[in-house]
Simulated scan of single mutants.
Amino acid sequence: MQVTVASVKGDGVENEDGVFVALPGCVAVLDGLSAPKDLPMACRHGTPWLVRQLGTRLVALGSDHDLPLASVLRIAIEEVNGLHADTCMLEQEAVPAATVVMLRERPEAFDYLVLSDSVLVLDTGSSVKALADSRVEDVAKTEMAAALAGPAGTPERTARVSELVARQRGLRNRPGGYWVASTAPEAADHAITGSIQGGDLRRAALLTDGASRLADLFHEATWEEVLDLLDQEGPSALLARVRAAERADNTGTRWPRFKVRDDATAAYAVVDPGEPSLH
């Protein structure tokens, strides 16, 4: 499995996405959940720290083929919990969190895991399908609709986004809500997992929602076209297409979204690619 990656920062202060690769074949892409500045945080480390600590452990643990990926995620969360300082109040809602998408190559199969709304696109030759956990879209619908109303960047819109995040925090990692990688190891039990026989997978894309929006929000490409773009021009070209579409809707009114320009990360995996890629 050959993997090429690209990531660009959105409108925030720093890139809260992360992409991690370990040989001989394990890749993880994480999208840190942004915390509005006016909401409290119970952890002094912040979201980028969580993404780095969790991502490195995911690919290290994932290289052990005897561990199912759900177990990999559970153990990684437990290990990162042990790194928090005594001042971090992990039982509270206001703790860093991230989405996770993973792909692992074993001699006879490829394993995958998807937690929350990052996207895994799989091409088996006979079909192309996209996997994402969209449960976050099914909670706090009233607050979500309000947060997406009107042009982006206004004080009113910013306040409504904070109200949405506050509501979502109370629904994270509990029955009837939605699940993300944070401080609750049991979130791993709610991830989408599966395996594909080794000879059946041709290529795959692991995308944060800032990159997947070209297909699932803007509808400027099909999933197969996204894979073709990644194959022919590389992940940076996909992210450039995303930025071009965002510039065409600079107020976020044609395609309502929380961030006009979100952090965007893409990892593209090709199985038995033959000649080395120049991407």
Rank of each mutant, 00 (worst) to 15 (best):
L54E: 02
R74K: 09
V226Y: 02
D216K: 14
S127I: 11
C43K: 02
C26K: 02
T99Q: 06
D263T: 03
P185Q: 12
A264I: 06
A205D: 10
S236F: 00
L103D: 01
F20D: 03
L238C: 06
A248H: 08
V136A: 08
P256F: 11
G199T: 15
S7K: 04
E220S: 10
L148T: 05
L207S: 13
V121L: 13
K9M: 03
W223R: 04
R57N: 07
R254A: 09
A145F: 11
D138F: 10
G55E: 07
H279N: 05
T47S: 03
L217S: 10
T4G: 06
K141V: 14
M1T: 03
P68Q: 01
E156N: 09
H219I: 07
L69M: 06
M102P: 09
E224G: 08
D111R: 10
L23R: 10
S126L: 10
A267Y: 01
V119S: 10
L103M: 02
L33K: 01
P155S: 06
F218S: 07
L206C: 14
H190K: 11
L103R: 00
W179C: 05
L39P: 12
E79F: 00
L73D: 03
N250S: 13
R202H: 15
S116V: 08
F110Y: 15
L217E: 13
K9L: 10
R202S: 15
P185W: 09
T251M: 12
G46H: 08
L214Q: 08
R261Y: 01
L33Y: 02
G234L: 06
G210F: 14
C26S: 05
V121M: 14
R167I: 00
A42V: 05
A28L: 06
V29S: 03
H190W: 13
R106K: 14
R247F: 01
E79A: 10
G234E: 05
C88K: 00
A132Q: 14
A35F: 13
L23F: 11
R74W: 00
K129T: 14
N250Q: 06
S162F: 11
G198P: 10
L206Y: 13
G25P: 08
S126W: 11
A181R: 05
T158G: 08
D228R: 12
S118Y: 12
N81Y: 05
V121A: 14
A184S: 05
